[in-house]
């Protein structure tokens, strides 16, 4: 009989509690924080609607809004949102290269809402 290792259930890599807890903890520590949330997807987008990414003013992040292909651009926008306090809606797709210089390798399209935690 094979032996099953006694491992505790690992934390979920995209646990929404964790992401929001971290955002709240960063705020409580006096850091500026922005939240990015996938609000709409078309085609084969890598992360479902509701997926979130928390970013602080040092560029620390937790969570994801894609398989990694648009996070860089989202973090840049999140930094700007921390500065100006304006919520914004970002759209990414393969055909939208000139706007963002990033694309979704999977051929999907995704809308990401970015807001500052006040």
């Amino acid at each position: 009989m094979t032996k099953t290792p006694n491992i505790a259930a690992p934390p979920r890599i995209d646990d929404p509690d964790d992401i929001l807890e971290r955002a709240a903890a960063w705020r409580a520590a006096g850091r500026r924080v922005a939240l990015a949330t996938v609000v709409k997807t078309w085609g084969s987008s890598p992360r479902p609607v509701g997926s979130q990414l928390a970013v602080d003013d040092k560029g620390a992040m937790l969570g994801s809004v894609s398989g990694g292909c648009i996070e860089g651009a989202v973090i840049r926008e999140a930094m700007e949102a921390m500065e100006d306090g304006r919520a914004r809606l970002l759209e990414f797709s393969v055909s939208n290269e000139q706007a963002w210089e990033v694309g979704l390798a999977c051929g999907g399209r995704v809308e990401v809402f970015v807001e500052r935690v006040e």
């Binding site: 509690d17 929001l20 955002a23 709240a24 809606l89 809402f113 807001e115 935690v117 006040e118």
Partner: peptide, 25 residues
Amino acid sequence: MKTATLKALLAARAAKTPAALVTEI
């Protein structure tokens, strides 16, 4: 998002009670 909203959301999650957040884009 207001910090008060975030805190209330986290409290609802901790209590394992449902919550819904409506955002005007």
